[in-house]
Computed example of a mutant assay.
Amino acid sequence: MTHPNSHSVSVAGVIIDDQGRALLTQRRDNDHWEAPGGVLELNEDITTGLLREVEEETGLQVEPVALTGVYKNMTRGIVALVFRCKVVGGHITETDEARAFRWVTADEVRALATEAFAVRVLDAMHDDHGPAVRQHDGARVIESETPM
């Protein structure tokens, strides 16, 4: 049974390499380029879910470095916690969920990903601010009525 006021929580890992590039995955279900991640399981803690989702989608083991943003899809009621991560093991491997991978610069992120997903990666690529708090409609960022 779905409750009209319920939300789900997802996690994503923006993996940054030594050259400052981010890893994007091309999803098999919709061909979109995004950071690896997914919905937390009900009894799963945030870090465990992040590590599981990233490894399931990329074959990489990562270590979260910092929470870089909290994002809400206002249309679907999904709250996403996004973390900057570094690789600590594994190898990039095609999966049931990801068909391709690219290490990208900020300009390439803007060209490949939709605005709502690009902003997550771009926020994670910049070290100079605390976690961003943003909302979107699934494609475009929506400005907050109350500035933070």
Rank of each mutant, 00 (worst) to 15 (best):
M1V: 15
M1N: 13
H3D: 15
H3T: 14
P4M: 07
S8M: 03
V9G: 00
S10Y: 03
V11A: 01
V11R: 00
V11F: 00
A12K: 03
A12T: 08
V14Y: 01
I15N: 03
I16M: 05
I16P: 03
D17Q: 05
D17T: 05
Q19C: 10
Q19E: 14
R21N: 04
L23P: 08
R27T: 11
R27Y: 13
R27A: 13
R28I: 11
R28L: 07
D29S: 14
D31L: 10
W33L: 10
E34G: 06
P36T: 05
G37A: 04
G38H: 02
V39Y: 01
V39R: 03
E41P: 04
L42D: 12
L42W: 08
N43S: 12
E44L: 02
I46A: 02
T47C: 07
T47E: 09
T47W: 02
T47G: 06
T48S: 01
G49R: 00
G49F: 00
G49P: 00
L50Q: 00
L51S: 01
L51G: 02
R52F: 01
E53R: 02
V54L: 01
V54G: 00
E55P: 03
E56I: 00
E57K: 07
T58E: 02
G59T: 09
G59W: 08
G59R: 07
Q61G: 10
E63R: 11
P64Q: 03
V65I: 15
A66T: 14
A66G: 14
T68N: 09
T68A: 10
M74F: 04
M74V: 11
G77P: 07
G77W: 02
I78H: 01
A80Y: 03
L81T: 02
L81E: 02
V82W: 08
F83E: 06
C85P: 09
C85G: 04
K86V: 13
V88L: 11
G89F: 08
G90Y: 05
H91N: 12
I92A: 13
T93Y: 08
E94N: 15
E94Y: 14
T95N: 09
T95I: 06
D96Y: 11
E97C: 11
R99Q: 12
F101S: 06
W103R: 00
W103A: 04
W103V: 08
W103N: 04
V104W: 04
V104D: 10
V104K: 00
A106D: 05
A106E: 09
D107C: 10
V109W: 00
V109C: 04
R110L: 09
R110D: 07
A111D: 09
A113T: 11
A116P: 07
F117P: 12
F117K: 10
A118N: 06
V121N: 02
D123H: 12
H126R: 15
D128G: 15
H129T: 14
A132V: 10
A132G: 15
R134K: 15
Q135M: 10
Q135C: 13
H136P: 05
D137H: 07
D137V: 11
G138T: 00
G138H: 03
G138F: 02
A139I: 12
A139K: 13
R140F: 13
I142F: 13
E143C: 13
E145G: 15
M148E: 13
M148I: 13
